[in-house]
């Protein structure tokens, strides 16, 4: 009896988490037009998806945006984390606190203020405005991930490298970066995921010249649920699973 209670509970939790996903995957192979009856196995929605040129274009746009936003925010974020970790300077606490403000403030507030800013400086809404916005909300996550790694970093390591004849630049290249590499990768992946599925901020700062996937899906769903979306969801799921496995593999390798 006592053994069954936790098991049942756990099963329910996992059902709640995974049943919707399983339903989505199963129905992406459904031959039927409606989402609630089974019409046999088929790949027709995948075909329809690939033939939907606007959709494919939005997918590439989203991937490219996520890739560039994650890379830019990892570069800036890593340097910010290093500066916060290594140096004592005026306004350090303020800077640190501001990162949390960005992270904690409602997305809608960030979206409106970014839009207002872009309109003010006369920036054409499109790839650039999206990139700037995505870098803004990814940055604190990268900084915090890298800072967490740095806080466990042995302060004697850079000294040991200097002691053995490395100058500051060589030390950074051969010791500091390799040691914090897992955090850089984790930060990058986090930024990539955040950027890929952002809807709120993107809605405000995107323009007609650069359509991205979440917004495309959102507008599709508004006029009625097409089974194509299930196929798209399945593809995204496979993609994120591959990314997850890849990141775990890199982490494991770096530990060895």
């Amino acid at each position: 009896m006592n053994r069954w209670l936790p098991r049942t509970y756990l099963t329910l939790v996992y059902l709640l988490l995974y049943v919707p996903i399983v339903v989505l995957v199963v129905f992406s192979f459904n031959d039927s037009r409606t989402g609630y009856e089974w019409g046999g196995l088929s790949l027709r929605w995948y075909e329809a998806l690939l033939n939907n040129r606007a959709m494919v274009q939005a997918m590439w746009n989203s991937l490219w945006l996520a890739l560039s936003a994650a890379t830019v925010s990892t570069l800036i974020g890593a340097l910010t984390a290093l500066a916060l970790h290594r140096y004592r300077f005026r306004g350090k606490k303020v800077l640190n606190g501001m990162l949390f403000v960005v992270m904690m403030s409602p997305e809608i507030v960030l979206a409106i203020s970014l839009l207002a800013l872009f309109l003010l400086v006369g920036l054409q809404l499109g790839y650039v405005s999206l990139l700037l916005a995505h870098v803004t909300f990814c940055l604190p996550f990268v900084v915090i991930t890298v800072m967490a790694r740095l806080s466990g970093f042995d302060e004697r390591l850079p000294e040991a490298a200097r002691d053995l004849g490395a100058n500051d630049f060589t030390m950074t290249r051969t010791v500091l970066i390799p040691v914090i590499m897992p955090a850089l990768l984790a930060g990058w992946l986090l930024g990539f995921t955040l950027s890929l599925d952002d809807v709120v901020v993107s809605t405000f700062v995107s323009g007609p010249s650069y359509e991205i996937l979440p917004l495309r899906i959102y507008s599709m769903v508004r006029v009625g649920l097409k089974p194509e979306v299930n196929a798209l969801g399945t593809l995204l799921l496979v993609f994120s699973l591959v990314m997850l496995i890849l990141s775990q593999w890199i982490l494991l390798r770096s530990k060895r």
């Binding site: 004697r156 390591l157 000294e159 040991a160 200097r162 002691d163 053995l164 004849g165 040691v179």
Partner: peptide
């Protein structure tokens, strides 16, 4: 600077890379 001194250190907690 330390990198130009002909002295080397063995650190307390080894500080191996």
């Amino acid at each position: 600077p330390p990198e130009h001194r002909p002295l080397n250190t063995v650190f307390q907690n080894y500080a191996l890379f």
